Simulated scan of single mutants.
Amino acid sequence: MRTMAPTARLHQEELQFRLILAATYPFFLAAAALGRMSPARKPAHAGLPAPHRSVFGEARAMAMQAIPFAFMG
Rank of each mutant, 00 (worst) to 15 (best):
P43V: 00
G73I: 03
P26N: 01
R9L: 15
F28P: 04
L10V: 01
Q16Y: 03
A59G: 00
R36S: 08
A50I: 00
R2L: 12
R18I: 01
T7V: 04
G73N: 11
S54R: 12
A32P: 06
S54W: 06
M1C: 09
P39G: 03
T24D: 15
Q65D: 11
R9D: 06
A70G: 02
P43M: 06
G73R: 14
A40K: 14
P6W: 06
A22S: 05
L10T: 07
G47V: 06
A23E: 13
R53I: 15
T24Y: 11
P51L: 13
A46W: 07
L48I: 14
E58S: 07
A23P: 00
G57V: 04
E13M: 11
R53E: 14
L29H: 11
H45N: 14
R36I: 01
H45Q: 15
G35E: 06
A30H: 08
L21S: 04
E58N: 06
M37E: 08
A70K: 05
Q16W: 04
A50G: 06
T7G: 04
A46P: 00
R36N: 09
F27S: 07
S38W: 09
A22E: 00
Y25I: 13
M64S: 02
Q65G: 03
M62P: 02
Y25G: 01
A31D: 12
A59Y: 02
T7R: 15
A70W: 10
Q65S: 03
